[in-house]
Amino acid sequence: MTISQILFIVMSLVVLGGGVMVVAARNLFHAALFLILSFFGVTGLYLLLDASFFAAAQFLVYIGAISILVIFAVMLTRGAMAAQPANSQWPAALVVSAILFAIIAVIVGPIAVTIGERQFGDVSWPSVVEGQPVPAVPDDILVRLGQSFVDFNQYAALFLLAAVLILVAMVGAIWVARDRTPREVIEERAELAEESQDMAPPQHQLPVKNAEAVEAPTAGH
């Protein structure tokens, strides 16, 4: 066993153990912490893959940022912490996941399986010849990545699309999450009511919360 193999196994156990606890933990905050543990293990796997920039980015983006977001969301929806972690379909979900894993494992794994006429598994990946070392990563890989980000023949479109995605996510998330003033709530509901009246004969007024607490728009509708 080489040191790399030992490290890989340790990291994988961290990743998978963390992942299992994420889906099994009763307490959502603990689930979020195990999620962070799992992310940390993935950082280690990236280092084994010589993708140091991505390891640091994983640390910064997932552990430093996304997990904060998840923990905040857990706190903001705290009253809803379920007593039961899983819904009624969990046995079926378990079976589906296990079958999917078995299929992928057969396809990518080292064991050849023959089903009917066709043989699956034991793929000899094209450039990874048995017994030969994997080619080294060029030293200037980050420079190449930076070049490809701004090269229109490569990923410049993707790069700009990422910015657009960030813009859209910002707009959408702020629109959805922000606190509305009572007046805005009333206006939105009135619009909704109008729309539903257009579609169907009116049955009843939509309930308006806190209507008496503010000045409702009296005229205009």
């Binding site: 910064l60 983006v61 940022a65 702020i174």
Partner: peptide, 10 residues
């Protein structure tokens, strides 16, 4: 937090 996350990845 969400504004921070999006700027962070950017």
């Amino acid at each position: 937090a969400l504004i921070f996350v999006l700027f962070d990845v950017g």
